[in-house]
């Protein structure tokens, strides 16, 4: 039996929600609302996070292009996905929202350019 406390982030109340994992599923207490209950369940069973990072870009005024995942990915996949993302390299110009990498590490989530970067004027 595992017991964890989840700090709820659904609203500013920041409830400390207790989750006990027993034989019969989850025993959740300390929440004040349905959304809090849902959140605590998700945080224990399959926590998800957005991935944001920067990758190398050439031919622009900047060295780095910010990228963002098209949806949340499993928290445990964050570091493996980042390792992959850090290896990416693109050439300017890049348009915001364009797909830089499809289906990162088999998560089904794409990595998108998080801004538009134009080509730097020559010289």
């Amino acid at each position: 039996m595992r017991k964890v406390t989840v700090t709820c982030i659904v609203c500013p109340s920041s409830c400390r929600v207790s989750v006990r994992e027993g034989g019969e599923g989850l025993e959740i207490s300390g929440h004040q609302c349905r959304r809090g209950l849902e959140h605590a369940r998700n945080e224990v069973k399959n926590p998800m996070r957005m991935l944001t990072a920067t990758i190398a870009v050439t031919g622009a005024d900047f060295n780095l292009l910010p990228v963002i995942s098209s949806a949340e990915i499993p928290k445990k996949m964050l570091i493996p996905c980042l390792r992959t993302v850090y290896g990416l390299r693109v050439q300017a110009p890049v348009k915001e929202g364009s797909v830089i990498l499809r289906d990162v590490c088999g998560t089904g989530v794409d990595i998108l350019a998080a801004r538009t970067i134009t080509r730097a004027p020559a010289g």
Partner: peptide, 12 residues
């Protein structure tokens, strides 16, 4: 959105 995406929406 990330900060750059939010800005981009206005910049465009």
């Amino acid at each position: 959105m990330s900060g750059g995406q939010y800005a981009q929406a206005f910049i465009d």
